[in-house]
Design a protein around this nucleic acid. Structure first.
Lengths: 235, 235
DNA sequence: ACGATGCTACGGTCGCGGCCGAAGCGACGG
DNA sequence: CCGTCGCTTCGGCCGCGACCGTAGCATCGT
């Protein structure tokens, strides 16, 4: 079982700004090279190398060598979930005079739509969740969530590829997880269902990653698609 | 929204062994005085005081002064959930030669039954979850869980006080959250339902806190009660 | 009023760890 | 085969923060 020193070790790992930056930039599920991570962390490659070695040794990161590059990604969804938990606590922390440090164009894009590890977040993510709840397809509580049978049918109808195990007739319910949105302070859909919805949106070309950030651009086709599918219109 | 420096700050807070020890000892939901926390952290009161001040300033801890004592407790369930997430990652971390560092009587008691913030864990917690699942009262998936209507009726019949909002007839489902057990590596019931079950067991005198630890003692009455209520017998 | 107790504030010491420059190693490309 | 590129290792510098001793401030008991 996890001892105190283990907890402290993980905490200390996340507690360095450079490493925290690396982990945060990997939260969208992509795999980045050491040099890219060095850039986002604002340190030299040799410093980054040391950090990455420690993160990998502790099992936070998974490394995949490909030619002369080494791709780093979060080792497991558990790591992503831990980071989300930390961000949630950070967002709840009392921090006077933070509201003024917002705006900025890329920040605006981030608040509109972004990925959160493997699902949709931002106004878009929250709007979709709201729409599903309103239609009785989804329920959230403090501790969990469930897609109703009608919700499963609805999403399948849209072409969202729900995990096979849950698509079978034996299961009436599909579980999912609420994930508190940092910018909206309201839950959006995470977990298996969240991943499937996100995947579907990207596959359809409704949203597209904005290079070098976690922000998403909603394409013209997406505006239409999202409205007809979910009844969601931003602004 | 949570910036990288915010994440790093929280991480660094948890990353100190003394502070990690304090937080871990508060995971059972109790409120402890500064001196007690200094003891468990293995530092002098003045050092502990500094740590506690920082933890409180960042919103991880809530302080309640009572006479000349100052009681500290986790500020919110979100903090507990974050710590659980960290422990989960720590437990999954590759750590050769750790299996040998077990045994010890209090450790054995911990593995049998303990509290995890506000719900039951250990073999007892897992056994209850298993029993509920087997009876069709509960479902778990990777991302969430739900108590079925029959489960809600079953628990209410036992005298478990499910939260009022969910007891009403309007809601067929009661949500809960699976929490991966460190010692058993299998999920037990957390969240609203977990809290209610734990509360019920202590109220009935089925389990009792073992002083100075998170371990729980199962009383003779508890052995009988748990068997008749849930069909659970440890060993 | 007095001392005891619980906690906090201040100052000084010291060790851990993050950082970079220089150098080494392996992979690719011409 | 040699230059380039991506990454790592090593060595040394330096600053942050954890720690404690001393001292100060509240609260309680008698």
């Amino acid at each position: 079982m996890a001892s105190v020193s283990d907890i402290a070790e993980i905490g200390a790992l996340v507690g360095d700004p450079a490493r925290a930056g690396m982990l945060a930039s990997l939260l969208d599920g992509r795999a980045l090279t050491a040099a890219e991570l060095a850039r986002v962390a604002g340190v030299t490659p040799q410093t980054a190398s040391g950090h990455l070695a420690r993160l990998a040794a502790t099992g936070l990161l998974k490394v995949e060598k490909q030619g002369r590059h080494r791709y780093h990604r979060l080792a497991s969804p558990a790591v992503a979930q831990m980071l989300e938990g930390i961000m949630q606590v950070a967002a709840l922390a009392p921090r006077p005079g933070r509201a003024s440090v917002r705006v900025g164009p890329s920040d605006k894009a981030l608040r509109t739509a972004r990925t959160c590890y493997d699902h949709l977040a931002g106004r878009l993510g929250v709007a979709i969740a709201d729409a599903l709840i309103l239609a009785g397809h989804l329920e959230f509580s403090e501790d969990g969530g469930a897609l109703s049978a009608s919700g499963a049918a609805f999403l399948t109808e849209l072409g969202v590829d729900l995990p096979a195990a849950f698509g079978s007739a034996r299961r009436a319910r599909v579980f999912c997880r609420p994930c508190l949105d940092w910018s909206e302070r309201r839950p959006h859909v995470a977990g298996l269902v969240g991943r499937a919805i996100c995947h579907h949106c990207m596959e359809r070309g409704w949203v597209r990653r904005i290079a070098g950030t976690r922000a998403l651009e909603i394409t013209p086709k997406g505006v239409l698609g999202l409205r007809t599918a979910y009844g969601v219109g931003l602004n």
